[in-house]
Computed example of a mutant assay.
Amino acid sequence: MGSPQVATGIAQDLTVVLEERSGRAGRYDPMPYRPRPAASSPPGAPAMTDPAAAALAVSPRELPEAWHGAAVWTEVAGGQQAWRVRPEHLARILSADMDELSRIPNGVRLEVDTDAAALELELTTEEAYGDAARRVDVLVDGELVATREAGGRIRHLIDLPGRGSRVELWLPHSAPTVLHRAVLHGASRCSPAAPRGPRWAVYGSSITQGNQADSPTGTWPALVAAQNSYELTALGMSGQCQLDPPLADTLGAAGPDLITLCLGANVYGAGTFNARSLPPVVIGFVDHVRRLSDAPIVVMSPTAAGPHREELKNSAGQDQRELRAQIHEAVEVLQREDPLITLIDGSEIITTQEMHLLGDLLHPTPEGYRVMAERLAPRLAAVLG
């Protein structure tokens, strides 16, 4: 785990910070990319034959408008680091675990329109939690065309159609990653892809982070975003969805058109709040988000789990059924004054009769994520109308 001081140091000491644009859909005019020669590979790197003479560097340094899902990028030794939570917000949480989770590029992706013939990629991915997959995905016009392993320092050359296409590169969803190179070969043109739809920010636990997915586009938020044509900001934080106020600031800074808050799983696991403190904390967190955004807010309570959570009281004296009911009660209070708040009962998304969808009676399997997405996508679409 990183040091609690790492975020403060980055905020103070690094001079190159590439910020993702915070406006809504249509926030930029995708101007044609002016070709910039790709930097040479590090000494000792294996030789790689370019499929064409043109080599266009498209890392966040060269083409920041084409990268999505990160609050900021910072320069690190030999590459660039995505942060899902801004360093100044992390400095107010004081958690080494949150520092590390923020460096996991879950939902972070490149989106370009190009006629490139290949994508060259070089990155370093740290160890993942448990046995979570460390992979990258490449999509062409919405279809998955390549999945590649991403453990340690790797280089890949991935074939592209060589015709005008929307190309997406999704970074690993399960482990901290540094991007060293992203280069398009054989491209006569390249521009940031137009937004594919509303901006959607989702906050939650490891279930939302989706560590059990086979690859980055297999998490339930990525699947919902694909089905509903959303521009995703994914803030699943394994074990750390503790309603930290700076996370409300991060959600607001994303400039979303729709916000989803998946609350309760980590509060149960850590015994963070009891029956007295949880309802006002939920109300306060949602109120904080509302002060920063006029977007519709969907609050989802925990999906069903095994009897070790549904029936067993935690260290704060609640079982998950009681905790779920308290979240529902808090949201109902909010709905009296805010018609743009919607409640989803998580036990309807994964039910107590569907334990086969949970590999460990808590976290969904890849099939479980697909079921969640199938059930949540229409409900979220209905909120935006």
Rank of each mutant, 00 (worst) to 15 (best):
A201K: 06
I154D: 10
G69W: 08
V6D: 04
V183P: 02
E310N: 08
E329N: 07
E310F: 01
S41M: 14
N314R: 13
E88F: 05
D115E: 02
L119W: 01
V138L: 00
G2S: 12
M237P: 00
T125K: 04
P280R: 05
A77I: 14
F285N: 04
R375I: 03
H156Q: 02
N314P: 07
P60N: 12
A96R: 12
G23W: 03
V371T: 08
S191D: 08
W200S: 07
A45L: 14
P87Y: 09
D141M: 02
D131S: 12
V286G: 08
R163Y: 01
Q240G: 00
G164N: 06
A25V: 13
G264N: 14
Y369G: 06
R199W: 04
I344V: 08
A265L: 09
G79S: 13
A39Q: 08
R166T: 15
G9F: 08
G197T: 11
G152Y: 02
W67E: 08
R375H: 06
H288T: 09
S165K: 02
A316L: 08
R103D: 08
G2I: 03
P42M: 03
Q326V: 00
P378R: 04
S206W: 07
H156A: 09
A330Q: 07
A52L: 01
R321C: 04
R189A: 10
E322K: 11
L160N: 02
A295P: 02
V383N: 09
N228R: 15
S215I: 01
A133V: 12
G264I: 07
L361W: 05
D338C: 05
Q5T: 07
R84K: 10
G23L: 13
I297D: 02
I259F: 05
A225T: 04
G44C: 08
A57K: 04
